[in-house]
């Protein structure tokens, strides 16, 4: 072994660019968001550094003429809808993904690679194009309406677009590849001998599924749930394009405050609520498994 000359400077030098970029463009700006959420709204948008808790009160109350507070759940409804839709999306993705991931894992290697490629491919296709495709399908005179009419099942129908159902369809469609991949990875690690052992001990297919396969796939399902749930919380395109203007989620509510509504402090306060929701969920579920699965996914 040659004696290695240690240059501690290299470590610092290598990490410096990423850390400086993150500090200047992310960590400090997120700190400024906190500041803005306690600031006063500027007369023409923007904000002024005058301390107030008004933005947080605004999430819950309307302020009347004389400064009295009146409870208004409009923003709470948006927050609740965001949490609920994200949870339902996660559950639907779980239910759809398991049989598909299991089926893929049973195929021979070449077919397996091809099918996994087919699962990941839509994820490379522009997000906005994928959401847009549902407008053609669900909209007035859309594919579904035309098909049902051609079959003589209906004369006319209300547009399926704009509402919770359309958003849910869009969310599931957008994020389901993120659920299939980690579940597939954990099924691949499953030892087939365990399944056969269960059968040799007279476990039926159903019992084997419930007592052997599903428990062993839990890490993959958990990772998939995080990978679907977290981006759902911050979804913007699906609620904007499929939800219409009235049924909002937190993502497009924030966007609205920084755009047309010109209420930056309120937007900042809602951003912090969203960030808190994500961080609570991530910390509760363990950061490590997310990191691990994200790595497998991007591999």
């Amino acid at each position: 072994m040659t004696r290695r000359v240690k240059i501690p400077g290299w470590n610092v030098l290598g990490l410096l660019p990423t850390h400086v970029i993150m500090l200047l463009t992310l960590i400090i700006p997120v700190g400024i968001i906190i500041l803005v959420s306690f600031s006063t709204r500027g007369p023409y948008g923007g904000f002024e550094y005058v301390f107030t808790t008004a933005p947080y009160k605004q999430i819950l109350f309307n302020e009347g003429w004389t400064g009295e507070l009146e409870f208004n759940p409009q923003y709470l409804i948006v927050i609740a809808r965001t949490l609920l839709l994200s949870a339902i999306t996660t559950v639907i993705c779980l239910l759809l993904s398991f049989p598909v991931a299991y089926f893929i894992s049973l195929q021979k290697p070449s077919l397996k690679i091809a099918l996994i490629y087919l699962v990941t491919l839509p994820f490379w296709v522009s997000m906005i194009v994928r959401v847009y495709s549902w407008i053609i399908i669900l909209g007035k005179e859309g594919v579904i309406e035309k098909t049902l009419r051609a079959l003589g099942l209906i004369d006319s129908m209300d547009s399926l677009l704009f509402g919770d159902t359309a958003m849910l369809i869009g969310l599931v469609y957008s994020y389901i590849p993120l659920m299939i991949l980690p579940i597939f990875a954990s099924i691949e690690k499953l030892d087939p001998a365990l399944v056969e052992a269960s059968h040799d001990l007279y476990g039926s297919r159903l019992v084997t599924l419930r007592r052997v396969i599903l428990p062993l796939c839990q890490p993959g399902m958990l990772a998939g749930a995080i990978l679907v749930f977290v981006p759902c919380l911050g979804a913007v395109l699906e609620p904007t394009l499929l939800g219409g203007g009235k049924t909002m989620m937190m993502g497009n509510l924030i966007q609205l405050q920084f755009g047309a509504a010109r209420n930056w402090p309120l937007g900042a306060a809602i951003s912090l609520v969203l960030m808190a929701a994500v961080l609570i969920f991530l910390v509760a579920r363990g950061l490590r498994s997310v990191r691990k699965e994200t790595r497998e996914l991007t591999l």
Binding site: M22, T25, L26, I28, P29, V30, I32, I33, V36, V230, P231, L233, G234, V236, M250, G251, I254, Q255, F258, W264, G267, A268, S271, L274, M275, V278, L279, L282, L287, T294
Partner: peptide
């Protein structure tokens, strides 16, 4: 950036 919702990161950039 993977741990934060993108809209929050975008808002941070806008304010910055």
């Amino acid at each position: 950036p993977l741990l934060l919702p993108e809209i929050v990161v975008a808002v941070a950039s806008l304010i910055l």
